[in-house]
């Protein structure tokens, strides 16, 4: 934790965990487009399984907070490393916009997470752990409540727009973050690194675009 390399490795490891989390989140959300029942049962499992709720959920919360906190800390430290700025600087000549603006794209994603917590996570925690209702049932809804609640989030056009916009920031963040994490943990190979970079670009475009598709699908289907 004390040295620059240890910090960047931890940043990468928390990033890997979040990449993995996001992928499974995407797969489950995408199932809502294919099958209402499939989405309901997957959601009920994720929401009530004790290993996931008590084992993995705390790791996820810690991972998100750590990635954010360390990101801000590193940014502040990096700003201090150059106290006098250049009068004339051409950062686009040697580095991509995504790589230079990770703090901003990251903070935008965090802002979205604020909305997501308000919308989804806090009500979930309240229903399950404060009210003690683990049944997944909802008055007036057949089966479990998850699909119904998901659809309900995509009625308001502004919320859908905000949702889509935040995934643009996520995509920009991942376009640098995915391959950067491999470099940070010390993996570079002239055969595999080009593949990792392509895979990273694919992930950074397909997953956020998929989330946008899910949002638009449910919005349009309820018009």
């Amino acid at each position: 934790m004390k040295t620059s390399i240890a910090r960047k490795v931890l940043m990468a490891l928390s990033g890997f965990f979040l990449l993995f989390f996001l992928l499974q989140h995407f797969i489950i959300n995408f199932s809502s487009v294919i099958s209402e029942d499939g989405f309901n049962s997957a959601s009920h499992f994720m929401g009530t399984n004790p290993i996931i709720q008590y084992g993995l959920q705390p790791v996820l919360i810690f991972g998100v907070i750590f990635h954010l906190g360390m990101g801000i800390y590193l940014e502040l430290q990096n700003n201090k490393a150059r106290s006098v700025k250049y009068a004339m600087n051409k950062p686009s000549a040697n580095a991509s916009w995504m790589s230079r603006n990770m703090i901003y794209t990251g903070l935008m994603v965090m802002l979205f997470l604020g909305l997501h917590f308000y919308d989804f996570w806090i009500p979930e925690i309240k229903t399950k752990f404060i009210d003690g209702d683990m049944s997944g049932a909802l008055n007036g809804v057949e089966g479990t409540r998850y699909f119904h609640e998901l659809q309900h989030k995509f009625v308001d056009v502004w919320r859908v727009a905000l949702y889509c916009l935040s995934f643009v920031f996520l995509s920009l963040h991942l376009l640098h973050g995915f391959q950067s994490a491999f470099q940070s943990v010390g993996f570079s190979h002239n055969r595999y690194t080009p593949i990792i970079k392509k895979l990273g670009n694919l992930y950074a475009v397909v997953v956020p675009l998929g989330f946008v598709f899910i949002a638009l699908y449910h919005y349009v289907s309820q018009l």
């Binding site: 620059s4 960047k8 430290q77 000549a93 040697n94 580095a95 790589s99 230079r100 950067s180």
Partner: peptide, 21 residues
């Protein structure tokens, strides 16, 4: 690396600007 940190250089974020320049 310990000395590098002591000197007050920043942390690498893999932008790749160094390699280009």
């Amino acid at each position: 690396v310990e000395q590098m940190d002591k000197e007050g250089f920043g942390n690498c974020t893999n932008t790749g600007a160094c390699e280009v320049e």
